[in-house]
């Protein structure tokens, strides 16, 4: 409804945009600071946290991009701890029911990249290889009934990008969450 009215008020829209963008800039500043606090450390709340607040997304390794994004979205390395990546990359022949085997040199390059940019904020569940099975993930999604993930436009909890349009850039912010409706058709990339 609000958007409907806004359409008729370009000036108002412009002002709102101005406000939003300044808020966004301020928030980004906050987050940068928050990052520094983390390093000094140790709030128990942070134990489960993924590196999802980091405003700096590491440069995407090209081999990783070409080999690991044809079957699903791009999962940022910071979504799992190093141990999980090593375990997953050690068994690509049986990768969630599919064969994602790579030649050894490529596999090594991708593993190194993932480990180097992995999350360092996990202290538990280090054997979990699904992001969607980490304690952090479950806590952040505990209001969603499991049937929501099975909707046609989503498929499974692994399909972050169906709800978080910025997922491939590590953006899981509240503003960018939209849960597809039951009737939604095929998902776009």
């Amino acid at each position: 409804m609000i958007f409907f009215r806004l359409k008729k008020e370009p000036l108002l829209l412009f002002i709102l945009l101005l406000i939003f963008s300044s808020v966004a800039i301020l928030k980004a500043d906050d987050e940068a600071e928050e990052g520094e606090h983390h390093e000094r450390g140790g709030k128990s709340e942070e134990v489960y946290k993924l590196n999802n607040r980091s405003s700096v997304v590491p440069v995407i390794n090209q081999k990783f991009k070409s080999e690991c994004t044809s079957c699903h979205m791009l999962y940022q390395p910071s979504l799992l701890p190093a141990k999980s990546w090593t375990k997953m990359m050690g068994n690509l022949k049986q990768h969630f029911g599919e064969n994602a085997e790579l030649d050894p040199a490529v596999q090594k390059e991708i593993t190194n990249y993932l480990v180097k940019n992995s999350s360092n904020r996990f202290s538990s569940n280090q054997d979990v290889i699904r992001i969607s099975e980490t304690t952090y993930f479950k806590r952040k999604h505990d209001e969603l009934s499991p049937s929501v993930f099975k909707r046609k436009g989503i498929g499974s909890a692994a399909n972050c990008i169906a709800c978080h349009s910025g997922a491939e850039k590590n953006d899981f912010s509240e503003e960018n969450v939209r849960i597809p409706k039951e009737t939604a058709g095929k998902i776009k990339k």
Binding site: C71, F96, N159
Partner: peptide, 10 residues
């Protein structure tokens, strides 16, 4: 036509 993987990517 476009297809769909098991992990729901086009």
């Amino acid at each position: 036509k476009e297809g769909l993987t098991r992990a729901n990517k086009v």
